[in-house]
Design a protein around this nucleic acid. Structure first.
Lengths: 227, 227
DNA sequence: ACTATATTACTGACCAGTCAGTTACTAAAC
DNA sequence: GTTTAGTAACTGACTGGTCAGTAATATAGT
């Protein structure tokens, strides 16, 4: 007879479960939205049954919060560190940060979070608030610091930094959101790489101080234009 | 005795119902999303009962399609006309079209459609496809024509128009989406007016041909820089 | 044998779409 | 002008299905 090992139906894996559940949850939330994702499905993808989810998380919302905390917050901390260090021109720093965020959000499922939150904010204000406090307000602050520094050093023309922060992030956020929503409708998706470099090019051209071009730090800015 | 008219519980209003239902539907879809909006609620807001909805529309999806067709498609046709006419510089035309779209989407509930579609695209591919074909592909085509014209006339530097179209629309779409989602989390929303003008300023600076500024059509573009 | 970990079966609430029945209106007959 | 029969517009209870969260039960590990 050839069933030498009677396969046990499940294992106790107290340590591994939460991380596996969080990983499954973030994937599915991003794919189908918070409301439309069934807890049973998350459990299945993590290789357990629905009841098990409730051994580790008190509710669907709790699971979501864990996903955000583990998926995004560490990246933010990393960028904050980069800005502290402050080497080279602001333009270069901005470019690096944007490209870096670009690759992270392209490679990992956390890139789907912006879409998820936009989609569910109205119906789950608690989640929206959480994400806003934990992620958005922090990232906003971070870019505003960078823009102010650029203006102070004469690299950038003067502008309203609170508004410009939103504007310059928009192309990146929008593309990320697109990739997780309507992109399935188009025949030939655009090259992400190319998109990012074109967007950065546009933004840096649009931000820089008026005097011809220079690109180096010792061009002193003159009076500003009004278009 | 003073109840001269016995109030009837309802009236027959065959002509008015569809429009009222569509209006209620678009409002609620935008507010709460397609899936989360109950048909009963749409009916209530339109002053009828749930069954009545099915006298005029075959399904929830059908109601949605009617909303898109009545709310957006006419605006697109108008813009297409504007581009045909083609008066003045491309930059001015672009500015006008963007500002005009800006005001429409700020004032009417159709401004909520981008958010709605982004949110539901994955779960309702049929709706996404419909919106893509009916609205997105048409609007894309329209802006690409404009950008190509700008490059051909030497007003804009050369770039990949398919990509740039997405990039320059992003700030406007993103803000519109924001207003219908996470904006409820922030204490002081930004001035829409100011946002739009700053975005346009950034974009036109970022697009224009390299030689000093000119703004007129007879500056011949020279070799392009690489930043 | 004991208990922590996991499963399965269940509960209560929700909702799109249906349909049998009710009401507003119309017009023919008187 | 009033009754009556007919029909189109509308209602709301019901069906069949879904799903978050809970409770009862089983099994792996010690």
């Amino acid at each position: 007879m050839i069933h030498p090992v009677e396969e046990s139906r499940w294992r106790r894996r107290k340590e591994a479960r939460p991380a596996e559940l969080v990983a499954a949850a973030i994937e599915l939330f991003v794919e189908k939205g918070f409301a439309a994702t069934r807890l049973e499905e998350i459990a299945a993808r993590a290789g357990v049954s629905k009841g098990t989810v409730y051994l580790y998380f008190s509710s669907k919302e709790d699971l979501f919060k864990a996903a955000v905390r583990e998926g995004v917050v560490p990246h933010l901390a990393e960028v904050e560190r980069l800005i502290e260090e402050d080497t080279g021109s602001v333009a270069d720093l901005l470019r690096n940060i944007l490209l870096n965020a670009w690759h992270v959000s392209g490679d990992s499922p956390v890139g789907g979070l912006p879409k998820l939150l936009v989609a569910e904010a109205r119906n789950f204000p608690v989640l929206a608030r959480f994400y806003y406090d934990e992620v958005i307000s922090r990232s906003t602050r971070l870019f505003i610091v960078l823009l102010e520094r650029g203006i102070a050093r004469g690299e950038f023309r003067p502008f309203d930094v609170k508004i410009m922060e939103r504007i310059i992030l928009a192309p990146f956020l929008m593309h990320t959101i697109w990739r997780h929503s309507l992109s399935c409708c188009e025949a030939s998706p655009l090259s992400s790489e190319h998109y990012a470099t074109e967007a950065i090019e546009l933004i840096l051209r649009g931000l820089r101080a008026d005097k011809p071009v220079g690109q180096t730090e010792h061009t002193k800015p003159k009076g500003k234009k009004h278009a």
